[in-house]
């Protein structure tokens, strides 16, 4: 009878393999993904080889679980973040006139677009953004005129240490302005880049 028929876990823990090796240590080895990395004893021991093979087979679903990619559903996170945002500020909107009516774009969209595109620039470690109203009034609307909708954005970021910061700021400005135009149709009249910190 092999140890695998043993149903009493406590006994299994206490009882080593016939070769004297600890069953728990072998399981540890398999769970750490090192079941195939065998020491000199294990290479010549049928008991260890059988146990490692059996544990490897049984543990495979756990390895699958660990490797499984899990992405959080957007809905609930957005819902709770919206609640927090709602408690903190009033929404601002840009207004884009079109032939059949107005398109309203929340300042939030510009902020998120700016932040994400800034973060995509190599050398930017982490970035935040906010929209600036045309008349500098906090909470004012993003300005959108008939000659073309526009927005002003401020990006605050932490850069990777060692970057040429002026060149980085230029790259951020170019990337963010392009992306905002592409996604929202708004042109960026002013894009202030504040490099707040450098991170190792």
């Amino acid at each position: 009878m092999s140890i695998h028929d043993e149903r009493d876990e406590e006994m299994e823990r206490e009882r080593p393999l016939l070769c004297g090796r600890s069953a728990d240590e072998l399981l540890d080895q398999v769970a750490a993904g090192r079941g195939h990395v065998r020491d000199e004893h294990q290479q010549g021991c049928v008991h260890c080889q059988a146990a490692l093979g059996e544990y490897g087979r049984l543990w495979a679903p756990m390895a699958d679980l660990a490797a499984e990619e899990v992405v959080a559903p957007e809905g609930r996170f957005d819902q709770v973040l919206r609640r927090l945002r709602g408690a903190l500020s009033e929404p601002d909107y840009a207004v884009l006139p079109g032939p059949d009516g107005l398109t309203r774009i929340a300042a939030r969209v510009v902020v998120v677009t700016a932040r994400r595109s800034a973060q995509s620039v190599p050398g930017v470690r982490v970035a935040l953004s906010r929209t600036l109203s045309g008349d500098d009034e906090p909470g004012g609307d993003v300005v959108a005129g008939v000659a073309g909708a526009s927005t002003a954005v401020e990006i605050t970021l932490a850069a990777d240490y060692g970057e040429d910061l002026n060149a980085l700021a230029d790259r951020v400005r170019a990337t963010v302005a392009d992306r905002i135009r592409e996604i929202t149709g708004l042109s960026t009249t002013e894009l202030t880049v504040v490099i707040d910190d450098v991170l190792q």
């Binding site: 927090l84 470690r125 935040l128 953004s129 707040d196 910190d197 991170l199």
Partner: peptide, 24 residues
């Protein structure tokens, strides 16, 4: 990225809600 986390936490504590959102 713990350095970026720390930066975002400092910003969130200063009252930048966007920093909290990015952290999440």
């Amino acid at each position: 990225d713990s350095a970026a986390d720390d930066w975002l936490i400092a910003k969130a504590k200063e009252g930048t809600p966007d920093a909290y959102e990015e952290l999440v």
